[in-house]
Simulated assay, not measured.
Amino acid sequence: MTATSHDRLLTALVVHLHSTSVCSIGQGWRLAFAPFETITVHHVLSGSGSVQVGNDPPMPYTPGSVILVPPRLGHVVGDAGAEAREVSAEDHCGPFADGLAAFTAGTTPETLLLCGSIPAPHGQILGVFDLLRDASVGMPAGDVGHGVFDLMRAEVAAPGIGTAAITEALMKACLVTLLRARLRLVDRGLLQSPLPGDPRLARAALTVLEKPGAPHTVASLAERAGMSRASFADHFARVLGSGPMEFVQSVRLRAAARLLQTTDLPLKAVASAVGYADPSSLSRAFRVTYGMDLTSYRNLGDQAWSGPPGVEPREPSPVTGNFQGGEEKCEPSD
Rank of each mutant, 00 (worst) to 15 (best):
T207M: 08
P95T: 14
Q192W: 03
V87R: 02
V51C: 00
P215V: 13
A105D: 00
V208E: 03
L191G: 02
C115W: 00
A173Y: 00
G275R: 08
R224E: 12
E37G: 15
A97F: 08
V186S: 11
L183R: 09
P308T: 15
A154G: 00
A97L: 05
G241Y: 13
R252N: 05
L114K: 03
G116W: 07
L260P: 01
L151S: 07
A204E: 00
A34E: 12
G94Q: 10
M292A: 08
P140K: 09
A304E: 04
A101N: 05
T289C: 09
H42M: 10
R182Q: 11
A135T: 02
P332F: 12
A277T: 11
T108N: 03
T2N: 11
D98E: 01
A165W: 01
V270W: 07
Q124W: 12
G326Y: 07
K268H: 03
V248I: 09
G145K: 01
S65I: 04
M59S: 07
G145W: 00
F36H: 15
Y61H: 03
Q192V: 14
G54N: 09
T2C: 06
G64L: 07
L265I: 04
V14S: 10
A32H: 14
L132Y: 09
L45H: 04
Q249C: 12
G321H: 07
A255P: 03
G189E: 05
V319I: 15
V15T: 10
D91W: 09
A202S: 14
V311A: 10
D150H: 13
H6W: 12
M1L: 12
F36R: 14
M227R: 08
F36S: 14
T167V: 14
E155Q: 10
L17T: 03
